[in-house]
């Protein structure tokens, strides 16, 4: 059972990373235009954002 000492922190850390990634994506405005993002994904042009 001593293995739990490692596994639980690892599980929580990975979960926390997922949470942070979501909060970051929310903050950086990735959910602001869901319809537009769906279209941009299949746009044939080069996919780099304009400079």
């Amino acid at each position: 059972m001593n293995i739990l000492v490692y596994f639980i922190p690892i599980a929580l850390f990975l979960g926390g990373m997922g949470l942070l990634a979501f909060l970051w994506s929310l903050k950086s405005g990735q959910y602001e235009d869901m319809d537009g993002a769906a279209w941009r994904a299949i746009d044939d042009d080069d996919d780099r954002p304009p400079v």
Partner: peptide, 9 residues
């Protein structure tokens, strides 16, 4: 400088 369309809004 930059222009962006938001299709949702």
């Amino acid at each position: 400088e930059r222009a962006r369309v938001n299709l949702s809004t």
